[in-house]
Design a protein around this nucleic acid. Structure first.
Lengths: 319, 319
DNA sequence: TTGTATGCGTTATCAT
DNA sequence: ATGATAACGCATACAA
């Protein structure tokens, strides 16, 4: 494995000069530059990035923490991040956590260990105090409202979104509204729960534990949802589903079972994923691509900033 | 940022001793070990992995190249790989290529640049000669039959699978069989095309360009497929779809359009993804998780090995 | 414009 | 059992 020293010898220059042409620095005569370039070609040379990173003290790599990447929500967010990374000449390191805190800690460790310069956490499982502990090792960016905290973030107002969806359904005459989420804990879910509680008390509606269905992430999870619903005596007449994938599954299943949508069950999905358009599912559009881009920019920026993004309700055939 | 030298000073020992306790090497008195451990705790010390990697000459990291990770096929493969990686104390670096050769080359570069010890290529876009060029920089593992080549691989016999599906449909009385694939180029697609051609000539059936539908990867791509089909004068009576996701989309769309399955259109999916079970789609089970695990093991093994995995046809309601 | 010397943080070799 | 010291491959301050 030829190194910078070998190149210097081959080209008859010093290592400094080699380093200069390698990094496109000025002050190197065309003649010598060509000699180095020739040596590089001949030897099929390639930098040892570990050495570069050690020497420079940074890696041009950014970590991205997400529970799973085979989900349209995170896939789109990631796409936005990746686009910016490419443009800014950064590499991405993915940490797929399945919502396990231990895997999230691994990512944080990588930051501390100087393997990545910054960390974008799309959905966190760990507590705020843990994040705080690692703040001094590099930039950390979150995908949730970080009001009052010293961290950059790009987010939507999950409370408002949920409230708007609930209110819309209420105005359509629904009193029994349930919802499906990916997980009960986590910052977003808490906000949704709050919005739900507030909505119920605003309208003097009863709280019904059964109306909240957990672990809904994929299309096929719809079966679980429907099995659950069909067992109930007093079924909800409308469902807010925090992923169009799952919403699509529910619609499909209902078709098969002869349950009419929206007459017997109204559905509002989330994110305006491609499948929502195809199946004419009412949904809430969230600018995930833009959010991803912004998250990345914050990750490489020195200043702390907070950016709220806006959503849009799209009415289609399921309400 | 405290380093090993600082620790040595704090604990009143040499850097060598510190390194020893850091790496659990023998020959260090309990007393000194504790002193070092204490220093580590106090200083909140963490290794600089760049230095470790540079010094050791390897990174305990393995790259995984795949076109997209938000697809059940690759997601499952990845899951298998990830499981083994975790058990063997390796980290994974993902390269999502969207089938772009340039992005694949980046991964190969990383190997050359010593950022990863091995590379698992789940679906390649680049030519064999390119792979060959990088073989000397680390272990490369492929997910296709590498007969006669000096590379490890784990694969299924794509030709046989396709032939079996075609034959099954033929025996059911189908003469007009079409198929949907993710992309027309690539090793797997070539094998399928061969199987298709051979099948047609075996049974003296005509070749119909329109029967082959490209770019089918996601559920929502089904719309495109059906639009295409509905425009045809002489529609196929059966479809082999190389992803259950897309098959599910087709089934859903047909339900809506009142096209009866399997009477008017028979469907065979691929992979036995969760959605296939839910929607009772006939499919071909491929042990993706096992394949992933095996790919990883090959990636960290010194010897070259080739492992064929076996598939299983699952008959459900769509044929 | 070019080169020397030093540093980056660790591990490995070789004495002791 | 322990510690100097030399790698590892590159970047850079400083001198020339």
């Amino acid at each position: 494995m030829t190194n910078i020293k070998d190149l210097a010898k081959m080209a008859g220059v010093s290592v400094t000069t080699v380093s200069r042409v390698l990094n496109n620095h000025p002050y190197v005569r065309e003649e010598k530059r060509n000699a180095v370039l020739e040596a590089i070609r001949e030897s099929n040379y390639q930098q040892n990035l570990n050495a570069v990173h050690l020497s420079k003290g940074k890696t041009q790599m950014i970590g991205v923490v997400l529970p799973f990447s085979d989900h349209p929500y995170f896939a789109l967010l990631l796409k936005g991040i990746a686009k910016q990374a490419l443009e800014n000449n950064y590499k991405l390191v993915l940490f797929q956590t399945d919502y396990m805190e231990s895997r999230e800690l691994e990512a944080l460790q990588m930051l501390k260990q100087k393997q990545i310069d910054s960390l974008i956490i799309c959905s966190r499982a760990c507590g705020w105090s843990v994040i705080q502990e690692y703040l001094s090792y590099g930039t950390i960016v979150l995908c949730e409202d970080t009001k009052g905290k010293e961290v950059s973030s790009t987010f939507v107002n999950q409370y408002e979104i949920f409230k708007e969806a609930l209110t819309f359904l209420y105005k359509k005459g629904h009193q029994k509204i349930g919802y499906c989420i990916g997980r009960k804990t986590g910052p977003s879910s808490r906000l949704r729960a709050n919005a739900y509680q507030d909505f119920l008390s605003d309208h003097h509606l009863p709280y019904c534990e059964e109306y909240i269905i957990d672990h809904c992430n994929y299309f096929e999870d719809a079966k679980k949802v429907m099995d659950h619903l069909l067992k109930m005596d007093n079924r909800p007449t409308a469902l807010i589903v925090t992923s169009d994938q799952v919403a699509a599954g529910i619609v499909t299943y209902c078709q098969k079972q002869g349950i009419r949508i929206p007459e017997e069950l109204a559905i509002i999905g989330y994110h305006n994923e491609p499948i929502a358009k195809m199946m004419e599912i009412s949904t809430i559009e969230i600018p995930l691509l833009e959010m991803g881009k912004n998250l990345f920019q914050q990750a490489i920026s020195k200043e702390i900033s907070k950016q709220e993004m806006f959503f849009r309700f799209i009415e289609r055939a399921t309400v």
